[in-house]
Design a protein around this nucleic acid. Structure first.
Lengths: 179, 179
DNA sequence: CCGACCTGGATGACATGTCAACCAAAGAGG
DNA sequence: CCTCTTTGGTTGACATGTCATCCAGGTCGG
């Protein structure tokens, strides 16, 4: 998750006819600028949001996103797999994380009668209190850092752009979280 | 780095006059859609790029970004602090990571004569070979997932947008990496 | 020259994420 | 029924990131 901008000097003007397939399509200066800026923006945004929520509440941003899903459904009760798909997390990551959240009392497990192997996750009162406490300041920061600087038109544009890129990734050969 | 979209049900229509300062400015449905889409896009992009580079070369994307900086300068030799600023990493993270990279032979340390406490990092031949091997396919994927789906105009728009958001974060009170 | 404070960096304890292997319950197919 | 494969989920080993703390080398005021 970082400055992965291409055309490192050592590779940009390859005097050596590389072994790889033909010549890669290196980034132009304009593209490179966007790529570096984009990466930096993402990273800063992540860092700030994560740091704030961690500092001002009892939960991490990962906890928060799990709890968001749980508060989004009627009983605050979701199948683990459903959660995994929703968050797009690897199942082992989710499993580990849920275990920690149980230990901290934010959620509970409930067995699934329909399918003997599956299991449910339920939000606890403590979990509900935790997310309710964290949400207001979090939204406020999202607004300050992300929405406030953008015009209405830019919001529209960014929506299209995100959807486009997201679309390009569905059904991409590269490692998807085994969905 | 995840679904941190606001207005969790439990919090969206607060019947309870919360303790926090006034009513937070919750996201509208349109905003919420963008936020969720944006987060998902970022995450997928990260995941795919990280997974690919890890799978097809001997280095991680973090290694890659460090090596990019090193190949960007004449001697392949940079002050640690300079690296930290460039990557916007916390110094302890960088310190740990550099230690691992030294262990793997991708970089070396060199002492800094001008300033007794500082130290330099130098890319090794192995490091250079590693990044040269990884770069072509990485750029190719960046292009496929990020640039190809966008029109020229969208590239311009996204550049503006990223710069805008980035600008909003400079000098934000919230925890900056103590720069 | 001397202490008070700043700076560049390393370190240890711990939280988190990844990969690969494992396991038990469900579904086929014969 | 009885194997064979799939699926939902956990686990352990290990890579990575974070926070707080420590420390030696500089800087500065007197």
């Amino acid at each position: 998750m970082t400055s992965t901008s291409s055309t490192p000097h050592a590779v940009s003007s390859p005097a050596s006819a590389s072994a790889a397939s033909a010549e890669p399509r290196w980034l132009t200066p304009v593209e490179q600028h966007l790529w570096r800026t984009f990466l930096r923006m993402r990273q800063q945004l992540d860092a700030q949001l994560a740091r704030q929520i961690q500092a001002e509440s009892d939960i991490s941003i990962a906890d928060f996103s799990v709890l968001v899903v749980l508060t989004d459904v009627p009983d605050g009760r979701v199948r683990v797999l459903e959660l995994a798909r929703n968050l797009q997390w690897e199942k082992s990551r989710l499993s580990h994380h849920l275990a920690r959240m149980v230990k901290r009392g934010l959620i509970d497990r409930a067995e699934c009668t329909e399918d003997g192997r599956g299991s449910f996750v339920v939000i606890t009162d403590a979990g509900r209190r935790a997310i309710e406490a964290a949400a207001p300041r979090h939204v406020e920061l999202v607004r300050t850092l992300f929405f406030d600087p953008l015009s209405e038109e830019q919001v529209t544009q960014l929506t299209h752009i995100s959807e486009r890129i997201l679309g390009a990734m569905e059904g991409c050969p590269e490692a998807l979280p085994e969905s």
